[in-house]
Design a binder for these strands. Structure first.
Length: 104
DNA sequence: CGTATGACGAGCC
DNA sequence: AGGCTCGCCATAC
């Protein structure tokens, strides 16, 4: 077995630690996974995640507190409803207050 | 192996 | 406020 987890596995491991009702940013995930500066790779890893994964991909949003998906797309709506089910609130502009819902 | 791509981010206009 | 540029760097092809 490999001594070093692949970048993807490290990313998933961190995302799995995000508690219910909280959100984290791509950059934050990269930092916690020990790959600071790889925010884009975090997005790439989540994008290629199988649908039946146990990774809570919906709890990851961008640094501006917004969902990084085309507004109105199927994925956007899914992510938003999953978060709202957990109690995360969105303002009129589809933005989440990271000071209230951000994972410390 | 070179080029394009992207669920990002910070900065500038 | 909103949009554009540029740096970033693993992946895809």
């Amino acid at each position: 077995m490999t001594l070093e987890l692949s970048m993807r596995e490290r990313i998933y491991a961190v995302v799995r630690r995000i508690p219910r009702g909280r959100v984290a940013t791509y950059g934050q995930i990269a930092r916690l996974a020990g790959i600071d500066g790889h925010a884009r790779q975090v997005g790439y890893a989540l994008h290629s995640l199988p649908a039946e994964s146990d990774v809570p991909w919906h709890r990851v949003i961008n640094a501006r507190g917004r969902i990084s998906l085309p507004k109105g797309s199927h994925s956007y709506l899914l992510q938003r409803s999953l978060l709202e089910e957990e109690g995360v609130e969105f303002d009129a502009q589809g933005m989440v207050d990271l000071s209230r819902f951000g994972w410390r």
